[in-house]
Design a protein around this nucleic acid. Sequence first.
DNA 1: CCAAAATTCCCCACTTTTCCCCACCGTGAC
DNA 2: GTCACGGTGGGGAAAAGTGGGGAATTTTGG
Lengths: 138, 138
Amino acid sequence: MYAVDEKGRVNLPAKLRKYVSPEANDTFVITRGFEKCLFIYPVDEWNKLEGNLRNLSSYDPEHRRFIRTLLELASESQLDGQARLSIPQELREYANIQDQVRVIGTLDKIELWNPNIYDEYKNGQPESYESIAARVMK
Amino acid sequence: MYAVDEKGRVNLPAKLRKYVSPEANDTFVITRGFEKCLFIYPVDEWNKLEGNLRNLSSYDPEHRRFIRTLLELASESQLDGQARLSIPQELREYANIQDQVRVIGTLDKIELWNPNIYDEYKNGQPESYESIAARVMK
DNA sequence: CCAAAATTCCCCACTTTTCCCCACCGTGAC
DNA sequence: GTCACGGTGGGGAAAAGTGGGGAATTTTGG
């Protein structure tokens, strides 16, 4: 759990920063995620994703919709001197992020959640973690 | 049974340390486990697990949930000079670990339990150890 | 096109947590 | 008894996290 200050800045935990490739050069792309959270991609990871997007067809309505939604709120920015990232207001509103965030590192990106919404998400699942794990990792 | 000191440190018993591969270089990843306990993986074991996670699809809602839950509280750290590991507060809270822990070595990882919760878990099982053994090892 | 307002960004300062180190206690082996 | 090893406790430096002032830039309104 980390603080969001009045200026909408979030500290990226040192533990997670450690895993970000130096190629990213402290630059990140932040956009809306799945379920009401935000995704923060180190630019190098983002570029890979963007490469995949280019393979989609802008003549297919579903592809179009997917690309638009993903890019609509996307925004690139750099860490400040204290390793914090500014989260644009529209994105904060989308994820309902106020003064506290839960930060989750998920392999290729980082997720930001309103802590309450994350708890609801976890508790709202019909199946337990253990039983999903058994199925997924079989 | 081992002590947890005021700083949240736990001594990894010499008996267990003996079995950890030198490749792990005294580095461990600690995260939530199944049932209310914590898992401590030597990094080399963790890396294998992480490799499997990367094969999951982050576009599948169940896979996403699994990855989030597993990584949400995950944290890497090294043994200190006295062969102790610091257990982050959020993880201690999750497993309800206060001043005593039960430490169980389980082949590829180590489990930490609140001693009382572990007893309840054992006693709460409908089937006896012997009859599970018969089925599992058939 | 200019001025006022708002936002962004860069810097400095303070607080809290983590981690590195040293010291101590108890037990079992010699 | 004394030595070695495993386990426990705690002080203090360094790192991580937090808050906020003010210049620079962008946006807005006339």
